[in-house]
């Protein structure tokens, strides 16, 4: 069985620029798989492109991230814009499989938008490794904004703040979301704070709690570091109430970044962290390869038997690796 030869990345990119959705989808698959093809695609994109707007949406499981994203898509369509969404869900650490269920809440509103689900594939922190490369691709193809929904696994989701220009933290009333987020340091990362489910009792209290925590942040100098006190928006994702205000707040944040050197600084930081992640991944791949040789297995056996110390083994293995050409992870 020989599948018809698929077009190469350059050809795909050309077609994708012309608006072909299949080509966009295919390119994302290639970026996501990594390797040389992903590097090739990255190389085809302008190096420092400050166009576009990447909005990260994070928050506890069930806070309403997907519902809000869906409503944002409707708002954006009304405004004549063409958004894209990357919806990230966790891969199973045991089997590598994943169930990606976010887009169901968006599809009803997504006419004209491009929505793609992505599994974390072993990456920690609520994002998939390929997210920065994919958002760059989508922004380059003219999608504006590119919205990234993080997993909501409840862990600290710091990565999103480096992968997005604007980070939106979604909380809901009555569940201690705000307090949890504060404890986890998430408030420091948020550019816009949302109290969703504002139709529920306690929304005003939740808002007050957030204000209070921000006031404390003001005292501790947090606001000075972030540059700007995050706006708080109340929304009801099930009806769309407050969603235009949320969009306005995100746009205003983007504008304020662009007015100063904020955007440049963020994207620099993003690239720095992306480099670190890529490096880490490449090193891990090198290590895995080195361990999977006869020499590697011998050293491992010695360490397991206690006849060689882990430190000595490490030195032996590192010496065996030598300098290697860079690889897309």
């Amino acid at each position: 069985m020989s599948p018809s030869p698929s077009p190469g990345p350059a050809a795909l990119l050309r077609v994708a620029r012309g608006g072909d959705r299949r080509a966009v989808a295919r390119l994302i698959t290639l970026v996501e798989r990594g390797g040389d093809t992903a590097l090739e695609i990255a190389g085809l994109l302008p190096a420092a492109d400050d166009a576009g707007h990447v909005i990260g949406i994070t928050g506890a499981p069930g806070a309403g991230k997907s519902s809000l994203t869906g409503r944002l898509l409707a708002c954006l369509a009304d405004a004549g814009r063409t958004p894209a969404v990357l919806a990230v869900d966790p891969s199973s650490p045991l089997t590598g499989g994943a169930i990606l269920g976010d887009r169901v809440r968006m599809d009803g509103f997504a006419a004209g938008a491009f929505v793609r689900s992505m599994a974390t594939r072993g990456q920690q922190g609520g994002l998939a490794f390929a997210v920065p490369a994919t958002t760059r691709l989508l922004a380059h193809l003219g999608f504006d904004p590119v919205i990234v929904e993080t997993t909501g696994v409840g862990q600290v989701e710091v990565d999103i703040a480096s992968a997005a220009d604007t980070t939106v933290l979604v909380t809901s009333p009555g569940w201690g979301d705000a307090v949890q987020a504060n404890k986890a340091g998430l408030l420091e990362l948020a550019d816009v704070l949302v109290v969703n489910k504002a139709d529920r009792p306690g929304a005003r209290d939740a808002r007050r709690d957030l204000e209070l925590m921000l006031d404390l942040g003001h005292i501790s100098g947090l606001e000075a570091r972030a540059g700007r006190r995050p706006e708080i928006v109340l929304t009801v994702a099930t009806t769309g109430d407050g969603v235009p205000e949320l969009l306005a707040a995100a746009d205003a944040h983007r504008a304020s970044l662009a007015a100063g050197d904020g955007l440049v600084a963020r994207r620099r930081r993003g690239r720095r962290l992306e480099l670190a992640a890529t490096l880490e991944r490449s090193l891990r791949a090198l290590v895995d390869t080195a361990m999977d040789t006869p020499a590697g297995r011998r050293v491992l056996a010695d360490v397991e038997a206690g006849t060689m110390s882990p430190a000595d083994a490490c030195a032996v293995l590192l010496a065996g690796m030598g300098p290697q050409p860079p690889r897309g992870a």
Partner: peptide, 10 residues
């Protein structure tokens, strides 16, 4: 009254 879309829990 609005309509309902369930939260996907597989």
């Amino acid at each position: 009254l609005g309509t309902h879309v369930e939260r996907i829990v597989v």
